[in-house]
Design a protein around this nucleic acid. Structure first.
Length: 429
RNA sequence: GGAGAGGUGGCAGAGUGGUCGAAUGUACCUGACUCGAAAUCAGGCGUAGGUGCAAGCCUACCGUGGGUUCGAAUCCCACCCUCUCCGCCA
């Protein structure tokens, strides 16, 4: 959520930032709504103040036994009733509308974010690693896995439906090893605290990180009869970042650094026809997520640091990748700046997103009321960041495709072998 | 699933219709005392919004949302959460 004071004091700057994201703001409509809000709020508060004063007088008169004065005040307050009720109702309506508008506005891009409307305008910042030269035609992970008898899309479709996968044997173990390797690396080498978190969360948590109210159709919703529904998490970002919702932290505990491995559930509404083959786009996938809660001054450096932590995983696995700065039009709703990491997939001959590292500044913190006590003793919104470190399913895809051999077996990356019981190669059982 | 208790300021904890945004304690800040500190004493100390050059004034907030009333922390309804006992359970 954007700072309401910023909108009131510098609406043109806000509109300019949102326009970069392709979200033009109707300035006249906003100003009209704000003017109306101000007028109605002032009128309402005047009426409330009058009522409160009279009610107080009634109490005093009754306490003193001044029945006549009490009756006079009672009569006067009665004349306020209708106008007050109408004013309060009108104010409620306006504030609700105001908050709905505010909650639907995305974050402002940082100045360094490149202009552009979609991913074609993203800017490559660096490349790491040399894509391997194959002396045979590399197969994609779906072919490889099915040939090895260790990825079974048909079984997953029977059990659940489209966009699920079932892993067996060596590849299932590889999947588990990747998650463990990532967790251990971030805990032991990067200073993160491991978190195990709920996979079902309430609506308030999803509002806090920005998935609600705008993106409900992307989520799996679990109804519970009379009780409030819960939602399957689309990313560990939601439970982990909401750890600090409605908290006032001691500044000394910052930065908080959490790492959490969870399955992620996405309905992929509106993705019809895209990436239908293989494990690239699934309703369920595992991800190891990095989350940092930091002092506002520290967030740009933390963003670089967190991105490097994600890159370290790719480098240890010796998977070629590039870092891309998302342009203003391609960034997620809550992000002020985002780096995507894209891994090389030889079968498709493309770099493919495997991690997204974002600085949300105070946008999520304001929605969550996540604050810390600053040096002056005042409560101040923290900055939040997160990034995939990494998406486990897509890392599995990258390992299979980059480490495949001519005979259809897959070499286990050296860095991963300690988590594979020393196994060096995955081949048909 | 059944029965019961409870949610008040950073924390603890009073308050059951009327000068209550809320006693008291504690933590914290400022000042006095001190060479300094502790102890003691005095004052300050919630959040959000409106208005004003400012001091200030005003409004809302006692888990959340409704309702009753001239007036609600206090009464009524629903929901959320916590705890205790019983049952079931990985």
């Amino acid at each position: 959520m954007l700072d309401i004071q910023l909108l009131r004091s510098n609406l043109d700057a806000v509109a300019a930032g949102l326009a970069r994201r392709g979200k033009p703001v109707d300035l006249d409509a906003f100003r009209a709504l704000e003017a109306e809000r101000k007028a109605v709020q002032t009128r309402t508060q005047d009426l409330q103040a009058r009522r409160n004063a009279l009610s107080k007088q009634i109490g005093i008169h009754k306490a003193k036994g001044q029945e006549a004065e009490a009756q006079a005040a009672l009569a006067e307050v009665g004349t306020l009733g209708e106008a007050l009720k109408a004013a309060e109702a009108e104010l409620d309506r306006l504030l609700e509308k105001f908050h709905a508008v505010l909650a639907a506005l995305p974050n402002l891009p940082q100045d360094s974010v490149p202009d552009g409307a979609d991913e074609r305008a993203n800017v490559e910042l660096k490349r790491w690693g040399e894509p391997r030269r194959f002396d045979f035609t590399p197969r994609d992970h779906a072919d490889l896995g099915e040939a090895l008898g260790q990825i079974d899309f048909a079984a997953a479709a029977k059990i659940s439906g489209a966009r699920f996968s079932l892993l067996k044997g060596g590849i299932a173990r590889l999947h588990r090893a990747l998650a463990q390797f990532m967790l251990d690396t971030h805990v032991n080498e990067h200073g993160y605290t491991e978190i195990y978190a709920p996979y079902l969360v309430n609506a308030a948590s999803l509002f806090g990180t920005g998935q609600l109210p705008k993106f409900e159709e992307d989520l799996f919703k679990v109804p519970r009869g009379e009780q409030e529904p819960l939602y399957l998490i689309p990313t560990a970002e939601v439970p982990v970042t909401n750890l600090v919702r409605d908290e006032i932290l001691d500044a000394a505990v910052l930065p908080l650094k959490f790492v959490c491995h969870t399955p992620c559930f996405r309905s992929e509404a509106g993705s019809g026809g895209r990436d239908v083959r293989g494990m690239i786009r699934q309703h369920q996938f595992d991800k190891v997520e990095l989350v940092q809660i930091v002092h506002p001054e520290a967030s740009p450096a933390a963003h670089e640091e967190l991105t490097r932590h994600a890159e370290a995983i790719l480098e240890k696995l010796e998977l070629p990748y590039r870092r891309v700065a998302l342009c203003a039009g391609d960034m997620g709703f809550a992000a002020a700046r985002t780096f995507d990491l894209e891994v090389w997939l030889p079968a498709q001959n493309v770099y493919r997103e495997i991690s997204s590292c974002s600085n949300f500044e105070a946008f999520q913190a304001r929605r969550m009321q996540a604050r810390f006590r600053n040096a002056k003793g005042k409560n101040e919104l923290a900055h939040t960041l997160n990034g995939s470190g990494l998406a486990v399913g897509r890392t599995l895809v990258a390992v299979l495709e980059n480490y495949q051999n001519a005979d259809g077996s897959v070499t286990v990356p050296a860095a991963l072998r300690p988590w594979m019981g020393g196994l060096e190669e995955i081949s048909a059982a």
